[in-house]
Every structure is written in C-alpha cells, then in structure tokens.
Amino acid sequence: SHLLLTEPAPLAASQDDSTNDGSLRTLLTLCDLLNRELLVLIGWAKQIPGFSALSLVDQMSLLQSGWMEALLVGVAWRSQASAGEELVFARNLQLDEAQCRAAGLADLYEALRHLTSRYQAMNLSPEEVVTLKAMALANSDAEPVDCPDSVQRFQDGLHEALQEYESSRREQHRAGRLLMSLPLLRQTADRAVQAFLRLHRHRRVPLHKLLLEMLDAKA
C-alpha cells in the first residue's frame, strides 16, 4: 500500500516544436518525456521503504543500473490497455509500429510489445506492477555494491511484501511468476538503452543532461 501511494501520476508529453521533421520531433518529444520521467523516478526511489537507508554510493549504483527497467514497467503497463498495438509512453504520446520505425525505434517497439504482451497475459494487478517496478530497481545487479547486506535487506523487504500480498490473495504461484518475468524486463531495458545510445551517437539526436548521464552509466 505504501508503494501504491507513492506511485507518481503519469506525466504528459510536451510536444517539441523546434523542427519540421516529423520523426525527429517524435524523438525529441520522447527524449524530453524520458528525461522528466527520470527526475520523477529518482524522487520516487527515495520513497521506497529501505532505499534511503542505503549508502549514497549504492543508491546511485542501483539507479544507474535499474532506471530503464523501472521506467519500462510503466510503459508496458500503460500499453496493455491500448487497443491498437501502440506503445503508450504518455496519454498524449502513443506510438504505433510505423511511427517507431520511422523514428529509428523499430527494435525498441518490438521489444516493448513483447514485454507488454507478457504482462497482459499475466493480468497484473496495480499492486503487482508497483512491486515489480521497485524490485527491478532493487534487483538491478549493480556493481560494485558498497554494502551488500543493506541492498539484500532492501530486496528482502520487497520480496516479503510481494509474498504477503500474493498469499493474501491465495495465489500460490504468482510471486514466482512475477520474479520469473524479470529477465525479460532486463533484456527489454538493455535493448532500449542500446536504441537510445544509437540515436545519440549515430544520428546525433541531442539528449538532456540527466538522460545522457544515465545512458552513459550504461554504455
């Protein structure tokens, strides 16, 4: 219930109007949205029970390692409801396959649709989504870790919450199924990071400083 309460309201995209090139405009709008989502994500992380007890170094490591996974849980969750096969980055930024392809994000589209249909098939509850998001951050396999015991305690707290929630619903296999979906999330996030790095390096799409800093940490 704490995670449900601290879940930030979805952001709206602010349309970039610095260029007439439609697909570049889409990219710039998307990158601006991502940058603002990152800011919100960092504020959100501090509110997860146990996160602020970690050393500053470990907080940084977990975020640098797990930010894309945590953000993509949100995108995949929002995209489930989309009737057409769009990716719902925001209510006012929904991209279909053709738009993603035109923007050079065909690979990201495919990866995210795959994740979305996996979540759809699992019929996740809001409680499961917020827990999955927090676990993605806690389980990000950041290296090096300053205090492994504290990170372990942070993970254990979330795992315990998930198990308690599922046993209250008498769902014996759900916690395990959720954990078994984490590898696909990791894979999807890796592909997303590569896609944005490509945009920046090969197509010289300008990125905001925070987004660039977080992508660089993964490069």
Partner: peptide
C-alpha cells in the same frame, strides 16, 4: 562520481 554529478545532486536533495 564527477561523471554522475546530476544524479548525485538529486539524491542529496532532501525532498
């Protein structure tokens, strides 16, 4: 750490 100064600053802000 110098490389990640924005994240560092954001985490240090108390709010």
């Amino acid at each position: 750490k110098e490389k990640h100064k924005i994240l560092h600053q954001l985490l240090q802000n108390s709010t």
